[in-house]
């Protein structure tokens, strides 16, 4: 037993990498499906915030991420836009990260095509803006001042959807899908706390704990945290909307669970081996 623990203490890191890779590849290749229990929580709160909007409402989605966090945030973008279009809500896309505008375009165009939403009537992609919080502050008095044209160069006044949306206060809900800064922080500071616009969010798992404080104070109406948050939302859509397609995040949850078990196993083994080794060293010292 002692020798086994000693060997485990000195295991090659590449063995750990192989086991981690296997714990992700095998469940995905075998298409394992683990249940995702949904109760009341931040994901359900965001769903309800959208579902209680009357059809014809206007929602801004800010795609504040880039391809490095696409795995976590793009499934949220797809699920949210599907829900919004299916519910008859008009969507204004924008981005405070340069590549977010392209990723948002993918998500919105994909959902719009399958649900028959018309560009410029039901949705528009305003594109990327610099300035983060400063731009949001300016949008509070005039969105056109920040976006004189949309991502494709169409002038603001020529976009039917934007005719009755002149400032942030004209929007019923703002959602920031955020991989860092600028992102949810800026939206809460400017849109919610300055102009009173309800704000929801989706974020990478790394940043989820810091945004939970905004939920307790009501500064966020709901939050999707990481791949789990995206899978939650997809599951809620499937349970509540007949015929809703499966999403991108749900198939990854089995791999997520198994890889977490492997990591927990490594943490336990590492600690047991370390403690056993320390006891042995202390015994030897005596």
């Amino acid at each position: 037993m002692g020798r086994l623990l000693e060997r485990l203490d000195k295991v090659d890191r590449r063995v750990i990498y192989i086991l981690m890779a296997a714990s992700v590849i095998v469940p995905l290749a075998l298409k394992l499906d683990f249940p995702i229990p949904i109760g009341s929580g931040p994901s359900m709160d965001l769903y309800m915030a959208i579902d209680t909007l009357p059809p014809g409402s206007t929602v801004i989605i800010s795609f504040d991420y880039d391809p490095s966090t696409k795995a976590e945030l793009q499934p949220m973008a797809v699920a949210l836009t599907r829900h919004l279009f299916g519910h008859g809500v008009r969507v204004i896309g924008m981005a405070m990260w340069p590549q977010g505008a392209s990723l948002g375009q993918q998500a919105m165009a994909q959902a719009a095509d399958s649900l028959g939403a018309e560009q410029y009537e039901d949705w528009v992609n305003l594109g990327y803006t610099v300035g983060a919080g400063v731009s949001l502050l300016r949008m509070g008095s005039s969105i056109e001042a920040v976006y004189p044209q949309d991502r494709d160069g169409v002038p603001y006044d020529s976009i039917p959807l934007m005719r009755d949306v002149r400032r942030l206060g004209d929007v019923d809900l703002a959602i920031s899908l955020s991989a860092g800064d600028p992102g949810i922080h800026s939206w809460v500071m400017m849109a919610k706390d300055t102009y009173g616009v309800p704000v929801g969010g989706g974020c990478t798992a790394v940043s989820a704990p810091e945004f939970y404080t905004y939920l307790g104070t009501g500064q966020l109406v709901g939050l999707l945290g990481g791949l789990r948050g995206a899978a939650d939302y997809e599951t809620i859509l499937r349970e509540r909307i007949p015929g809703a397609p499966g999403g991108l995040a749900t198939p990854g949850m089995a791999a997520q669970s198994i890889s977490h078990l492997v990591i927990m196993g490594f943490i336990v083994i590492g600690n047991v081996a370390f403690i056993a080794g320390r006891s042995k060293r202390k015994g030897g010292a005596k």
Binding site: I25, L28, A205, G252, Q256, S259
Partner: peptide, 25 residues
């Protein structure tokens, strides 16, 4: 709080790996 942050960080890193493995597979 640190434990929760660490757990979420692990989840984030695994999610990125899952995304790339899904792409490859």
């Amino acid at each position: 709080a640190f434990g929760a942050s660490f757990g979420y960080t692990v989840m984030a890193r695994i999610s990125l790996l899952i995304g790339q493995v899904q792409f490859l597979l």
